[in-house]
Design a protein around this nucleic acid. Structure first.
Lengths: 163, 163
DNA sequence: AGAGCGTGGTTGAGAGTTCAAGTGACGCAC
DNA sequence: GTGCGTCACTTGAACTCTCAACCACGCTCT
């Protein structure tokens, strides 16, 4: 049992900054989305991921992967969004175990109405503080961290060059 | 009402990576802390911030600032930690409005027992994926983002050079 | 065909978080 | 020294998330 390696100055700065960003940024975005349309950042992302999928639907487990969430969390949220008429759940025709979540037309319209305000907030609260180079570096570093946490995370697919 | 500026490739990569990190990293750390000692990452941070303060106590509002949390959230959590005997609340002697949270000896011991496993997890889940240079860049970029979200955030004090 | 195992998803209970409202105390204006 | 606005919290209710248990289906092996 040896003495643990404590964080040095840069490691500590990086860690504390990430920790703060982690609570402040989602709070700011949640806030904007909630006043704009009683939607959380997570709700928004669920719908956004569906809107980008072929046919605007995905199996629950793939949607969970794309939102980095547990199936349980997703299930509760999809139930809520379904009650609002923005999503619809259907059984998969070939595999009766899987449920697919479909973005409804009303959901799509809602999402489109929310999108401009949301990206604008992403800019003002996040991207505007950075230079083009910062953003490029952050994308690279961020993807490294994601890879360390989940080595076949969906955002790492098709964007990486192959050998 | 002009067309919003959507995200370009790098902006999107940076944003999606941050979003994923944001859910995966705290989950991993919460997990470790919870199995090690039924403590959340936020609980841990509250105690860690107190442990680093002069005299191991801070007014609630300063503690809230240091944990980037709302006073309400903090109040609930401090109540919980107080019930476990790790913290103690005392009225401020000069200003009866303020409550100070003190880390107890038991709390300090608990924190010290948890710390090695926690830093180790911070390393394996986060820092190990990065080079020294990445960490330095991330610290710089991260602090820029924090500054954009809260221009007098505590982590920006004393670490920045002054004019 | 059926036993056993893994997969995909749901559910309910308990823990945690947020939001709005409330309680005192300070401090300044007159 | 009496209002009156602000500050520093606290509280309770509503909502969200997590965790463990559960169900149903598909796959493989015999």
């Amino acid at each position: 049992m040896t003495e643990p390696r404590w964080l040095n100055a840069d490691e500590r700065r990086a860690w504390l900054a990430l920790l703060s960003i982690n609570t402040l940024l989602p709070a700011a975005l949640d806030n904007q989305l909630h006043t704009a349309g009683k939607v959380s950042l997570f709700d928004y992302n669920v719908m956004a991921m569906l809107s980008e999928a072929e046919g605007r639907f995905l199996p629950m487990s793939q949607l969970a992967a794309r939102t980095s969430s547990s199936l349980s969390r997703l299930s509760h949220v999809v139930a809520k969004l379904e009650k609002r008429g923005w999503l619809e759940r259907r059984p998969h025709p070939r595999d009766a175990r899987v449920t697919t979540a479909h973005l409804s037309d009303v959901g799509m319209t809602t999402l489109e109405a929310l999108a401009p305000g949301h990206v604008e907030t992403v800019r003002t609260k996040f991207l505007d503080a950075l230079t083009e180079r910062d953003i490029h570096d952050l994308a690279r570093i961020g993807e490294k961290i994601v890879a360390g946490l989940d080595d076949d995370h969906w955002i790492l697919r098709d964007t990486e060059s192959r050998p």
